[in-house]
Design a protein around this nucleic acid. Structure first.
Length: 571
RNA sequence: GUCCCUGUAGCUCAGUGGAUAGAGCGGCUGCCUUCUAAGCAGCGGGUCACAGGUUCGAAUCCUGUCAGGGACGCCA
């Protein structure tokens, strides 16, 4: 576990205190205004240090001094040994230098860097974790499509984002529940049932048409066949309404079963499958409506029941219960959020949805607010659509037209690791173009294998060490000092920061990019530094490097694990 | 009409206030008698859509324009 106070925070504190002391000593002008945050960042160019602050540039104006002058004075004060000893023990800083046009740059000590290898090995995968979440209960809801057909590629995107985010949140100390919400009531379900009924009748050469706005996909024919295989022709002798609901139940159970299998294929594990119908059976629907009414957000008008979202500044009210007395999908969603926040009392709720559901954002925030819940507790991550291409042509994705590429087909063609990596590596905000042919073609030489190959190379070295009976537990890490060794360690030490950043911003898409960088650092080290040497005089260095390799294994495996990808020992 | 997302290398995309804008793929050139060449090193490739503005500093923030995708129902 990474220390509560990160190195950045310690350097930030150091800079702030040094500035104050410089002011007290009269070397920098005193100013009653509060000092700006030092904002410790990592320079893009590694030659400029491990950390840097642009504080002098920010102070130049109010101090009426050239920024470079401030930088020089600040660097001198920060370098002051007494201050270093008192504030941070000076155990990790090597150099502190002013730099044009007004930065102060910080370099970490090689010996401190090398020593971190032992910490990583001692802690194992949890080295990269933190306590950011403080045990708060977070629910991540994702995929959640109606069980009216198989999952297709676009759903894979939401699935990968949601499950990876859940992994990351767990790692930084949240208690996470992953949930799939499915509709087992409502118009679309009825539509599905009628479509299935028509397909079933067609199997018996009866005259039946799939409704125009029904589900026309081939899979419905297959589904009808499966259901017939189980319950035979008994449905034919029921009344139409009974037949439809009987078939519907059987068909829907099958679809849901298939979805559960598909989701497993993508290595997604939901803790709970939440049924819409249960909201009515268990009373959440009534309680939610009552709560909204108690808060004064329910109005009756034109024979319908409305949610008065205009009271909260929205453009228009929304219908909760139709004139027919049937609740809208929106109303059940209100009940569902009541269940999440009031009944189950989650500290935070995150919902990953596709761009076609973006209207949801403007609806649910006011709803939770109306229920007296801080809207900030609800976060909706909207990911843009996935465009499928095959051989340069756009493939239409529509369940109803039936021209779809299923998640299963995709995983079977491209592989689950590549799927997860590829879907995760794009920001949810960007539209994705997924060229299936290209994905397959590139699968032999793509970043997925690049990262996994690094792990396999590590495993190969550790295997060799074991075969040769090398015990490297007493390896002396102070022997590490090669630039490739230090670069690898630096890269590993970035992971804890990255995890906090990803968890805070809810942006898991940085992880695959980092994994590539880590793999690059390892491949470079591998190229530059022989680990298991046949020369006796290299024994000690070999042992130290084996420790480093072992730490790299832990870091790389942690990355892959957070992405729910395999970390192969050989390829 | 209103709202949301996007526009960065030939292609697919990272980079959301700092220093010389990056990766993968594709193209070109080198490197395997010791731990996996699914690797490494190098070359080439950019008006960060456009125009203003804020700032010591803008791909990043604000405004506008253009272009692409999406959402706006007593559908779900």
């Amino acid at each position: 576990m990474t220390p509560i106070m990160t190195i950045q925070e310690r350097i930030a504190q150091l800079v702030t205190e040094a500035t104050q002391i410089a002011q007290q000593m009269g070397d920098l002008p005193a100013d009653p205004r509060a000092l700006p945050e030092p904002d410790i960042h990592r320079p893009s160019n590694p030659d400029l240090g491990d950390f840097a602050t642009a504080l002098p540039l920010k102070l130049a104006n109010q101090m009426k001094m050239p920024p470079m002058e401030i930088a020089k004075i600040l660097a001198a004060y920060v370098r002051n040994t007494d201050l270093l000893d008192r504030l941070v023990g000076a155990e990790f800083l090597k150099n502190i230098e002013p730099a044009h046009p007004g930065f102060v740059n910080f370099w970490l000590k090689d010996s401190w860097l090398a020593a971190q290898v032992e910490s990583i090995r001692k802690d194992g995968p949890t080295y990269f974790d933190s306590t950011l979440g403080e045990g708060q209960r977070v629910q991540v809801e994702f995929v959640s499509i109606n069980p009216t057909g198989p999952l297709h590629v676009a759903h894979a995107r939401g699935g990968v984002i949601g499950s990876s985010l859940a992994n990351i949140l767990k790692a930084v100390g949240y208690e996470v529940e992953q949930e799939y919400y499915f509709n087992d009531a409502g118009n679309q379900i009825e539509n599905f049932q009628r479509s299935l009924h028509a397909r079933y009748l067609q199997l018996f050469d009866r005259d039946a048409q799939v409704p125009e706005d029904g589900y026309h996909g081939e899979y419905m024919v297959e589904l009808a066949r499966e259901v017939r295989g189980e319950i035979g022709d008994s449905i034919l002798y029921l009344s139409v309404e009974d037949a439809i609901s009987e078939l519907g139940r059987a068909g829907q159970a099958k679809i849901l079963e298939a979805i559960k299998k598909d989701v497993k294929l993508l290595r997604i594990n939901f803790d709970k499958w939440f049924s819409e119908a249960s909201l009515f059976q268990d009373g959440q629907y009534d309680s939610a409506m009552q709560l909204l009414e108690d808060k004064g957000f329910v109005a009756e008008r034109d024979g319908a029941v409305w949610f008065a979202s205009t009271k909260l500044g929205e453009d228009q009210d929304k219908v909760l219960v139709r004139g027919s007395g049937v609740p809208t999908y929106f109303a059940t969603d209100v009940a569902y959020h009541y269940d999440k926040f009031v009944k189950r009392n989650f500290d935070r709720v995150i919902n990953v949805l596709g761009a076609d559901h973006q209207g949801h954002v403007a609806l649910m925030k006011p709803v939770v607010q109306a229920m007296g819940i801080a809207p900030a507790k609800l976060t909706l991550i909207v990911h843009q659509m996935v465009t499928l291409k095959r051989g340069g042509d756009v493939v239409k994705i529509s369940k109803r037209s039936g021209d779809i590429v299923t998640l299963r087909e995709l995983v079977e063609e491209v592989g689950v690791d590549a799927c997860r990596f590829f879907f995760l590596s794009r920001s949810p905000d960007s539209q994705m173009e997924f060229d299936i042919d290209l994905a397959k073609k590139q699968s032999a030489e793509n970043p997925v294998y690049y990262v996994q190959y690094a792990h396999a190379r590590i495993a190969g070295i550790l295997r060799l060490a074991t075969e040769r009976g090398i015990d490297y537990e007493d390896g002396d890490l102070s022997l590490l000092g090669h630039e490739a060794e230090l670069a690898l360690i630096r890269k590993m030490l970035l992971l804890p920061e990255l995890m906090v950043q990803m968890a805070t911003a809810l942006e898991p898409h940085h992880l695959p990019h980092y994994a590539v960088e880590l793999a690059t650092a390892y491949h470079w080290f591998y190229e530059k530094c022989r680990v298991v040497s046949s020369l006796p005089e290299d024994d000690e260095l070999s042992k130290a490097r084996l420790k480093l390799v072992d730490a790299a294994r832990i870091a790389l495996a942690r990355c892959l694990d957070l992405m729910s990808m395999d970390a192969p020992d050989e390829m």
